[in-house]
């Protein structure tokens, strides 16, 4: 057993036999022994005063009411996914599915699957962000940026850059179609999020904004027959980026206002 094995044993646990091995190693290795002793949690002395504990107990007891525990996370996931599909379907019905008829089956399948997978991942991450201490299989911090990069690569791989003489005019038209759908989706998403406890408003705001933006992007991918890669990246994915940025901004403001309320309870 070497020093790395000791680290591993301390982290992952083990049986009595392993404990014996660790002890043997510690007898011969001064550095491991010092490390183990230095990290002894009992060296941190702290016990709350009885006054503090009593004060907390009284505060909690004063407002003690039975609460209904949250629904299972699968319900929330279904709700997020349902809202996404419903609004995209409504958008496709309302605006028309012109893009599907001009795209090849591979292009249509790939872009729609990529959008669905991205939305699914975001919804999964969001429902876990609503519950503190949830098991995260995908780290939520890099997820929004990761999804944007993934979609960028998919679009770059599927579509070619073409000369679009009305780049700005077409782009503005797409932005004005996609953004209202994103806003429309953000409202029910926000109501769902209110059922949980959002610990990091900035992170959750960015993820929710991106999910809302993906609704707008999906509507555009079904509706807009312009297959110029530059147009899709700038204006279709731009709706998602706009959503994520707005969500991040709202999260930032929410954090700031919560801090102000905390500092000034009368406000």
């Amino acid at each position: 057993m070497d020093c790395r094995d000791v680290d591993r044993a301390l982290l992952e646990g083990g049986g009595i036999a392993q404990l014996q091995d660790v002890q043997d190693h510690l007898r011969s290795c001064g550095h491991c022994r010092t490390l183990a002793q230095a990290l002894d949690p009992r060296r941190v002395e702290a016990a709350p005063s009885s006054d503090t504990l009593r004060h907390i107990e009284q505060s909690l007891a004063a407002d003690l009411r039975a609460v209904q525990p949250m629904w299972p996370l699968s319900y929330f996931f279904t709700a997020f996914a349902g809202i996404f599909v419903l609004i995209v379907s409504f958008g496709a019905y309302r605006m028309g599915t012109f893009a599907i008829s001009v795209m090849s089956p591979l292009q249509a399948a790939a872009i729609l699957c990529a959008l669905a997978a991205s939305a699914g991942l975001l919804a999964y991450s969001l429902v876990h962000q609503m519950v503190p201490g949830s098991r995260q299989r995908v780290s939520p911090q890099p997820l929004p940026a990761g999804i944007m990069v993934f979609l960028l690569l998919i679009v770059a791989g599927l579509f070619q850059i073409q000369q679009d003489p009305k780049f700005w005019a077409h782009g503005w038209a797409c932005l004005s179609v996609g953004t209202p759908f994103a806003l429309f989706a953000a409202v029910p998403f926000w109501f769902l999020l209110r059922r949980g406890a959002v610990l990091s408003p900035r992170l959750t705001g960015a993820a929710t904004g991106l999910l809302s933006g993906l609704v707008g992007t999906s509507v555009l991918e079904v509706h807009c027959p312009n297959l110029d890669a530059l147009h899709i990246v700038t204006w279709h994915l731009g709706v998602s980026l706009l959503g994520a940025t707005t969500g991040l901004g709202i999260g930032f403001l929410a954090e700031r206002s919560a801090r102000r309320r905390q500092n000034d309870p009368s406000a």
Partner: peptide, 16 residues
């Protein structure tokens, strides 16, 4: 004492 403390620390760390 240091030594029994160390053993008990390890027991704790190894989830015993």
């Amino acid at each position: 004492a240091g030594a029994p403390g160390l053993v008990s620390y390890l027991r704790g760390a190894l989830e015993i």
